[in-house]
Each structure stands twice: as C-alpha cells, then as structure tokens.
Amino acid sequence: MADAVLELEGLTKRYPKLVALDGVSLRIEAGEIFALLGPNGAGKTTLIGAVCGLVKPTSGLIRLFGAAETGSTVAARYQLGLVPQEINFDPFFTVRECLRIQQGYYGRQPDEARIDEVLGALKLAEKADAPTRALSGGMKRRLLVAKALVHRPRLVFLDEPTAGVDVELRRDLWQYVRKLRAEGTTIVLTTHYLEEAEELADRVGVIDHGKLLLVEPKAALLSRLGERRLTVRLSSALAELPEGARLEGAVLEDGGTRVVYRERRGEKSSAEVLGALYAAKLPIAEVETASSSLEEVMMRVLREGGAAR
C-alpha cells in the first residue's frame, strides 16, 4: 500500500450549537484522487479547514506526510495547496501579481515559467495582467485553483473547484487534475457535481452531519451499491407476466407495457433474465440497460445512513 500523506484520527470540531465533525478517521494515500461527498453542511469544508489551519479542531489528530508531530504545523503547509470554497480576491493586484505573491508566501522565489504554465492550464493566460476584480466569477474560481497549484504542492484540497465554471472549462480542469495526479500530486476534492466525482475519483468518502458514513474505492462502491437496470418495452400490454418470465425482481410496469428488472450484485444477471423473457415469447419491442450513477448510490447511502457500510 502507498504511504499516507494525510491521516486523521477521531477528528472532531464542536461549535457551540452543533458538531461539525464527529470523530472522523481517514487516511489519504499518496497519489490518489479522493472525493469527499456529502450534502450542504455535512462538514466537508470544516474537515479541509482543520487540515489547512483555518479551523481549530476540538480534538483528534491530524498527521501530514507521515510526520511524527500532529496538527497542521507551519512546516507541513509548504506542501499543501487549498482552493477555498468561498471566492476571495485582492482587488489591488493583477492575476500574475497574485500568483507571484502566492509563490512568495510559500517561500519560493518568483518563477514566471511556472506561473505561465498554471495560467495556461487554467485558460487564464489572456487575463494575466488584468486586475482580479475584472475577472468573471468562473475566472475568479480558476484563479483560486491557479493560486493553490502555483507552488507545486504535494497535497491539494479542492473545495468545490468547479462551482460556476462552464462545462467546457470544467472538462479541461478535470483533465488537468488527472495530469496532476499522474505527476504524483494527491488530491482531495469536494463537489456537488457527482458526475465530477464519478469522473475523477479513485476513492470516495461520504460524510453527513460530521460523520464519515463510508470510505470506499469508487468502482467497488458503484458495483456494491449500484444496480444495473434492464428495461424491456413490449409492443402490446400484458395483464401479468407469463409463467416462465415470473422471475425474482422482474416487475411489470406502465400498464403492462414494460418489464423492469433491477439487478443487484450476486443476483441473476440481466442477460439471463432477458433470455428468460425471450424464451417466454414476450412481444419484445425494445431493450435498454443502464447502470446507476454515483448520484443514485450517494442518495442511497445518505438515505440509509451508516447502514450501507
């Protein structure tokens, strides 16, 4: 197993009126893309803030890069990058100046080549000398991403990096995130676009009310909790399914014009069911199969809470 770049043990953050993080334990492996998912107010930003030094944890341990010491020490932050959820910008400076300042904060000499590279990757090259207040909302978000990456961090937190970013640029950003991973950068991502997590993540963590409900490789999660749905459209309506087609899990819907079979792992496969329907000589007009998305799986996890573990 790869080394952990981040380990949390029993991380808890209590506000006077609520518990934002409730005993979260988690390992982030070097070089992975980890998607932290959960509804509004689940505790995602709080978790990231605790690691990056924006939030003071009530209790628990944070260990970065296998260091013996705990807590977000100043030294570890040289290697961290953060795209905060809230857009912030200093209207006094241009895009390029902001990135130079950011390099300086991280103890680096100005590196214009790196700045140009990041600006290019985020499609901000044209705006390099524009004052930050003259950027559109999506451009400001991309500037936040550029700022988080310009000092070549080993571990990057992207807190909703594509909120308000248009479809095309979002895909560009995904590609860039994959490139970062290929270069060895570890990425922790939060997003409400589950398509984004499905596209990018190696592993998924679901958090709700400050509790981590599950952590699992994305592919395993989809196959464990996801289902394959077989829909067979009939050319004429049936009152009920004939003898040979009465299979566990297959139901007649839509006034008898459709047979739907939901395949769960370890059950009869859709192909077998379809074979049985043909054998029963049903008037089949059209066949359709679909797999559930991460979105459907997420809904199920949240509905069932910790029970889906």
Partner: peptide
Amino acid sequence: IQGTIVDLLAAPLG
C-alpha cells in the same frame, strides 16, 4: 473582510 486572510492562514506563515 475580503477573505484573503485564508491565503495567509493556509500558507506556511506562523
């Protein structure tokens, strides 16, 4: 107020 304090807090500036 601007929120740029986040940049300072997250950076290796003690």
